[in-house]
Amino acid sequence: MNPAVTTPAQLDERYGRGPRRRLPMIIAGAVALAVVGVFGWWTYQGSADAVDVTDRGFQLTDAHTVTVSFQISAPTDRPVHCILEAQDEQFGIVGWKLFEYPASTQRARAFTERIPVVGTATTGLVNSCWVS
């Protein structure tokens, strides 16, 4: 064999392309792919369970009650909880109530709820809603 001729095996050894050097890269790539997959799944689950709320208005029914109208868009077949509140002129909470809505086959639903108040309310709104 001519010493000037270089074989593919010698080139692989010289430039680090041997099978031993690929294994750590393959393992690192698999771990990175698994991490990306887990974070992707968590992101999907977070958006799949999102509840969108649209306030439709409020009415000061009397000195002790505020009525709030709103619409929710939530995942089907999952119960939803919402906290509604009434506020005074300084945005202090003068009344609130937790409502539970059973699972439904409809994605968008509208509700009108009454909130008892302990002071003079100037507004009523949906504080938050979540899938339970």
Score class of each variant (00 low, 15 high):
Thr7His: 06
Thr7Met: 09
Pro8His: 05
Leu11Cys: 09
Leu11Asp: 11
Tyr15Asn: 02
Gly18Asp: 12
Gly18Val: 11
Pro19Met: 05
Pro19Arg: 11
Arg21Tyr: 06
Arg22Met: 11
Pro24Thr: 07
Met25Gln: 13
Ala28Leu: 15
Gly29Lys: 01
Ala32Glu: 02
Ala32Thr: 07
Gly37Trp: 01
Gly37Lys: 02
Gly40Cys: 02
Trp42Glu: 13
Trp42Tyr: 09
Trp42Arg: 14
Trp42Asn: 11
Thr43Trp: 11
Gln45Lys: 12
Gly46Asn: 15
Gly46Trp: 07
Ala48Met: 01
Ala48Phe: 04
Ala50Cys: 04
Val51Trp: 05
Thr54Leu: 13
Asp55Val: 06
Phe58Ile: 01
Phe58Arg: 02
Thr61Ser: 13
Thr61Cys: 03
Asp62Ser: 10
His64Ser: 14
Thr65Lys: 08
Val66Leu: 00
Val68Ala: 06
Ser69Ala: 15
Phe70His: 09
Ile72Asn: 04
Ala74Gly: 04
Ala74Lys: 01
Asp77Gly: 08
Arg78Ala: 14
Arg78Thr: 12
Arg78Asn: 09
Pro79Ala: 10
Pro79Trp: 06
His81Asp: 15
His81Leu: 10
Glu85Pro: 00
Ala86Trp: 00
Gln87His: 08
Asp88Trp: 00
Gln90Ser: 14
Gln90Asp: 15
Ile93Met: 01
Trp96Thr: 08
Trp96Glu: 14
Trp96Met: 07
Trp96Leu: 10
Trp96Ile: 02
Leu98Lys: 12
Leu98Ile: 05
Glu100Leu: 08
Glu100Asn: 13
Pro102Trp: 07
Ala103Ser: 13
Ala103Asn: 03
Thr105Pro: 05
Thr105Asp: 12
Gln106Tyr: 10
Gln106Thr: 09
Arg107Ala: 15
Ala108Gly: 03
Ala108Ile: 09
Ala110His: 04
Phe111Trp: 09
Phe111Arg: 05
Glu113Met: 13
Glu113Leu: 04
Ile115Pro: 04
Pro116Tyr: 03
Pro116Ala: 13
Val117His: 00
Thr120Tyr: 01
Thr120Met: 03
Thr120Ser: 09
Thr120Glu: 10
Ala121Tyr: 00
Leu125Gly: 09
Val126Tyr: 06
Asn127Arg: 14
Asn127Glu: 15
Ser128Trp: 07
Cys129Gly: 08
Cys129Asp: 01
Trp130Val: 03
